[in-house]
Design a protein around this nucleic acid. Structure first.
Lengths: 115, 115
DNA sequence: CGCTCATTCAACCGCACGGTTGAACGAGGA
DNA sequence: TCCTCGTTCAACCGTGCGGTTGAATGAGCG
């Protein structure tokens, strides 16, 4: 089985799929409804939904003969968590650098940069 | 020219590249340093860095004959902005739904669901 | 039951991607 | 200057992906 984050990022790497997510954020929709604005076959859209589903971004239920697609909001937490980790790490780095530079200011500047 | 977000998501869809980002969050590194832990050629790693660079995730400078790779923290904002937009939208939907259900409770339940 | 409509499965196609190897390039050090 | 080391360029290869068309599936209605 493949890594979850990989699937999520790969799923969102396609503009059509991102647009679907955008529309599904507003309201659930069926495959045909989703396919309407795009200039591709319904089968292609069905495949896109499958990719989103495998990534856990979306869930397919069943209402009569329709299969409405529902956006699964939890993955956003997964993405945010991944991003925030590194954002914080980088910020911490800059904070340390700032501190170092500030200290440098007070000392006679021993000419040792980028050590 | 291609969409920025597409490039960013595509770049992060590869586990090796995500790992590189993780390591670069801690400290800048050269191509050879980055390549060391992985069981692939240096050229392959150089290609990965190019993809990250094209996505604006990373910047290559030049220090003597080395070309240290530096993580560009701003893209995280781009990603966060994209995610938060839809998270909020979905939350608003649920809030409306909750309100609707709450109202439903107080009225005689006219049996009109999923309208 | 039999038709119909929404959706998915199957097979195929072109292309981009991640990988390789071999050669070129460019900045220092001897 | 010449050699070396770090890195990138170029060409190639197999696989996966987004697209297509055509057929199958499955629920509801007449």
């Amino acid at each position: 089985m493949e890594d979850r984050l990989t699937k999520v990022f790969a799923a969102l790497a396609d503009p059509t799929r991102r647009d679907m997510v955008a529309r599904l954020a507003a309201a659930d929709a069926t495959v045909n409804e989703l396919a309407e604005p795009y200039d591709v076959s319904v089968q292609a859209v069905s495949k896109h939904i499958r990719v989103l589903e495998d990534a856990g971004l979306v869930r397919r239920s069943r209402v009569a003969q329709r299969r409405p697609v529902h956006l699964e909001a939890e993955v956003f937490d997964l993405l945010t968590a991944w991003i925030e980790r590194y954002r914080r790490q980088v910020e911490a780095r800059y904070a340390r650098l700032d501190a170092l530079l500030a200290e440098e200011m007070t000392t006679p500047a021993t000419d040792e940069e980028t050590a």
